[in-house]
Design a protein around this nucleic acid. Structure first.
Lengths: 194, 194
DNA sequence: TCATACTGACTGAATGTTCACTCCGGGGAG
DNA sequence: CTCCCCGGAGTGAACATTCAGTCAGTATGA
């Protein structure tokens, strides 16, 4: 096999990410995935109980690398506004450079798969969130520098526009250049700052 | 038939809206739709060429009533900020009271169906948009009261948060009361005002 | 060193199910 | 009778999942 060091299950996960992002979950037959990953159909079922489990496994992989990208050289000592704008900018940059990841996550979170996961997450977390820098940021409003809003509204005011903008960018309705990214991050900040 | 005055095709459209909103397009078999609408499978194909055409027809119906709700007692003589906040408030109110319509539209616009439509719409329109009060609003920035941003970013900064917030509200993560709606509308305005 | 036995990852044809869509027969109105 | 609307069993295609069998690799024995 010419596959350099990648385990078979990683090969399947990467092919699945690509296929799901391009065709959507329900237009991605396992047979086609097997072709793309260059494995037998049966092998997929050796590593993943069923298609659902595979979808969840892809989401874990994608979320992990997204969190890593955000955490990379993140500076917690910066003042709030800069920290926020840096996070948002980094998020937009990462997602616009990883269209497959973005398309997958969009689909995942607006499907029963992601909705269930979100539910579970919110039930399990108290004040401290594990490994989500942006949500952490909203919790730390000690300086009173942001409006007093429910957490959900902070989240909506940032992830909402970003998700719309990226969708438009991938459909070719906007060019996401440095300037537009900066404008977006600033508009998000204006929306939530005190 | 006990159906009071509703044409058969309207009966089908309403049942389709309900089913699509609850189960998603691809988990809504035509046979189930026929049961729900109390109609034979064949009759559905009498009025709609195929499932795709039916989905588009539902979207036209939903968009029409949404535009009507927005236009209702809209006052173009109000100053920009109030006009904007009124529009946003009205939109959130309408959608939160019409969960099926919201769920349908969300799904529609993040599927190939809606993406195609959006493309067609943008290609066909120049400066004046037909029948969308909110997009019209963004075009009329003559007073210089808003930041100078690309149209797409205005759209993203308003529809994005609204769509996130409504999704959370229907999943039970937030209670969408008057206050929250007001806060949202104001945050959207802060994001785009000069 | 070679021959034989064993193991389990791997494959893809076969299976049973689900679905979109067709088509023909029934029945009501004129 | 004719015309038209309607219903729902029927059809073929597509799909997720299974399983009987293959085979490369490794252990065992002489």
């Amino acid at each position: 096999m010419s596959d350099t060091g990648k385990s078979k299950s990683d090969t399947i996960l990467l092919a699945a990410l690509k296929l799901f992002a391009e065709n959507g979950f329900h237009c991605s037959p396992i047979s086609q995935l097997a072709d793309l990953a260059k494995v037998g159909v049966g092998s997929i079922y050796r590593y993943f109980k069923d298609k659902d489990e595979l979808i969840h496994a892809v989401s874990e992989m994608v979320e992990k690398s997204l969190q890593e990208a955000l955490a990379d050289s993140f500076d917690p000592s910066l003042p709030s506004q800069q920290r926020f704008i840096q996070l948002i900018t980094r998020l937009i940059n990462y997602l616009s450079r990883h269209p497959q990841e973005f398309k997958f996550l969009e689909q995942y979170y607006s499907s029963p798969y992601g909705a269930d996961k979100k539910h579970a997450k919110f039930l399990s977390e108290g004040a401290t969130n594990q490994s989500n820098l942006i949500v952490d940021f909203f919790f730390s409003n000690q300086e009173g520098i942001m409006k007093e809003l429910p957490l959900q509204l902070y989240v909506a005011m940032t992830f909402g526009p970003i998700s719309f903008l990226l969708r438009d960018s991938f459909s070719g309705f906007v060019i996401l250049d440095e300037k537009l990214i900066q404008q977006t991050a600033e508009a998000c900040w204006d929306a939530i700052k005190a």
